[in-house]
Design a protein around this nucleic acid. Structure first.
Lengths: 264, 264
DNA sequence: GAGTGGTCTAGACCACTGT
DNA sequence: CAGTGGTCTAGACCACTCC
């Protein structure tokens, strides 16, 4: 015998999948559901909570619960890095034409709210180990917050780190004034004579922190993809490290592994 | 002013992080917490629910709530495929020495419960498109369920598909009797003259289905990593496709993107 | 002000586990 | 059996949004 809140959840789920409730539709009020199913507030709230963590509905305080539209997935594939590298040596006009984010999302610049913040700080133990420098080394810490003006489109939270003395050769790289920088990080590194050889991305899934679930517009039950991205130059030196938070329900990472041929 | 259930959750979280409650410890009973914080059952249960979805505690009906040990992460990096490919042409004894799972988890075969099931079915629209064959083509469908006997160790759920007529050349490949097969899928393909050239993995995060959260031993709030893995042989043909479900809190995928050098 | 969801109370009863 | 968590009731009051 299923519990009442499971029955209610299953019933609403069915209505959504069958199309009786379509994306954007408002669900009956909780008081209404209590009358319909002849239960007290508890089970109704439990059922709605379940649908929220599954990402099926979205609840707005004082307004109501609504069926969410299935999120378009943004593919974030490995060749994005090759694409950025190829563009790094183009003219500014060419670089300005399209940015990385626009390429991936199909959104134009005006539809995106882009925010960049630059600061300096001393490298923590962990950060120093990534770069192979002493703890306390002066680092350039850049924070990027990309969010969509319209709902229902992809965003990302990025914390990027560079060794301060390495990038100080080009003063333009030290302030947020020049952001968004046409051509991205790989062109920024190019201006100080650095060529990136390979990029390592370590991917895990975890529950979002409170700030993240708010900025990304996902419920606290929807996981985020957490990336640790390390760029290594042609001399084997770590030149950039960033931590990226992506909404798990809207992002698809693509990894391609090329294998060596068997010797015959 | 924070809510009561948030205060209780924050308080317990702090006790865990400070080490007053260490992994394996039992939390006070809910009735006890009600007395301590002078609240009714609701807030206490809400607080514990929050800690559960964060993966900090685990609750067993009729027994109590316990602090979970932080899960050791299993790195699943791209060179795993090269490693498997290199082994595919070794002798059976050499292949038998260590399997893929044992290599990654550090567990021995006896600590793992391995289950394989083989069946045939007609390719669905989507599956046919992956392989570039007509819908309805006869497919070999293999289901793998790897779980740990001890708690607290990694597992995976794999659904693997092959074109039946392609692998029928070696009848050993058509039954589950030979599993676990020393050398894995790449050696199986080698026995029918197939060399894998590259592997594409598409990664997303999503909430676990009910069966998955049970088998993987994760709460319904912990996300799973969902992989679609496509193997392509040296003739550009898709030779294997699998869908893999991994516990998001215990898995780390590593992607390395090698970039081409700038022409000078 | 009317309607919505969010939080909380103070109980009841049931299901599960171990002794 | 006693002790635990799981479900549910039937209300109260608050916070938010819209008109």
């Amino acid at each position: 015998m299923p519990t009442k809140h499971e029955q209610i959840a299953a019933d609403l789920r069915r209505k959504i999948h069958e199309g009786k409730l379509t994306p954007g539709d408002q669900l009956p009020a909780e008081t209404q559901l209590m009358r319909e199913y002849r239960v007290s507030p508890g089970p109704v709230r439990d059922a709605l909570k379940a649908l929220r963590t599954e990402g099926l509905i979205e609840t707005r305080h004082g307004i109501g619960s609504f069926v969410r539209s299935p999120r378009r997935k943004v593919r974030r594939s490995g060749d994005r890095h090759q694409w950025e590298k190829d563009r790094a040596r183009l003219s500014e006009d060419e670089r300005r034409e399209t940015g990385q984010v626009e390429r991936e999302t199909g959104l134009t610049v005006s539809e995106l709210a882009f925010h960049a913040e630059y600061g300096t700080e001393q490298a923590s133990e962990d950060l120093a180990k990534v770069f192979g420098v002493p703890a306390g080394t002066k680092m350039l810490h850049r924070v990027y917050r990309t969010r969509s003006r319209a709902e229902d489109s992809p965003v990302s939270l990025v914390d990027s780190y560079l060794v301060y003395d390495m990038v100080a050769a080009n003063p333009d790289l030290l302030t947020a004034d020049k952001e968004p920088w046409p051509g991205g990080t790989q062109h920024q590194l190019y201006t100080i004579g650095i060529e990136v050889d390979r990029i390592i991305e370590e991917i895990t899934a975890r529950p979002p922190r409170a700030e993240e679930s708010e900025v990304l517009g996902i419920g606290p039950g929807i996981a985020v993809l957490f990336l640790r991205k390390t760029s290594i130059d042609i001399n084997g030196r770590v030149v950039e490290y960033s931590e990226v938070v992506l909404p798990g329900d809207r992002t698809e990472m693509v990894c391609t592994t090329q294998l060596q041929r068997w010797s015959t």
